Simulated assay, not measured.
Amino acid sequence: MADDRSGRDKQARDSDRRQRERDLAAELARGDEPEPPFDAADLVDVESELESLTFPATGAEIVAAVGDRAIESPAGRYTIEELVPAADAETFESPVAVSARIQRPTIAAAMKRVVEAADTLPNTELSESQRDAYEKTFRALKAIDADDDDEGIRAIGDWIVERVREKETLPGSRDVRRQAAKFCRANGYQVRNDEWLGI
């Protein structure tokens, strides 16, 4: 492909298309999650407000641009700044990626706290795979106590943040899963060995 404007434009369009396909695949995979979704119209409005930003954009840029924007969900009313970390370490590839993140508000709020805590650590970066493992643990906790008040998500989020503050390091994803399994068993939830939390 030629290194000219049309070639770069095509690369940008292809990259955007691939990101949208990944986001769509992630959303389809999340479709079985028990947390109620936001109204589609609210998400479209948020995406259109984000069009003024240049993507990829950091969480801090998104919060600065639309952080006070309120959105309604069956679980309550949230602002973008409650769900997106105000940190340069978190990057979103497109407005669709932001929408995908905020569709699960309790998980998004827990991840926001974790990312912001990790952002305080010098010379430490929350890798994408580690971030995904943390989020998968929160999703597993949400699935276990879907009718509860998300106590497990808050407890494990608090545990991760405390570990970051006390030990000045990010706990490994295995440690997080192990702690989540301990929480579940202590509260009477069954955790099988073949499940994500079954360590």
Score class of each variant (00 low, 15 high):
D150A: 06
Q19N: 07
A65D: 09
I199A: 07
P56R: 09
E195S: 13
S48M: 12
T124L: 02
D3F: 11
R165P: 02
E27Q: 08
E128Y: 10
P122K: 04
R163F: 14
L121P: 05
E47H: 07
A57V: 11
F183R: 06
I107G: 00
A108M: 01
D150K: 01
F183S: 09
K167I: 05
I107K: 01
R192F: 09
T79K: 14
V46Q: 02
D88K: 11
A133R: 02
R185H: 14
G152R: 12
R139S: 07
E166T: 15
E162T: 10
R101H: 07
L197D: 04
L141P: 05
S73A: 14
G198F: 06
I107S: 00
S94Y: 01
E93T: 05
D148I: 03
S127N: 08
A75T: 13
N193T: 11
K167W: 08
Y134P: 03
W159M: 10
Q179E: 15
E81R: 15
F55R: 05
T120H: 00
A40M: 09
I102P: 03
A118L: 05
A25E: 13
G172A: 14
V115R: 03
R30F: 05
V114S: 03
R13W: 07
C184T: 05
R22Q: 13
L53P: 13
A40I: 12
I199F: 08
Q130I: 07
D39F: 06
T91W: 07
A108Q: 02
D68S: 13
M111Q: 02
D148Y: 10
V63A: 06
V63W: 06
V84Y: 02
M111K: 00
D3Q: 07
S73F: 04
I160G: 07
N123A: 09
P37G: 13
A100T: 08
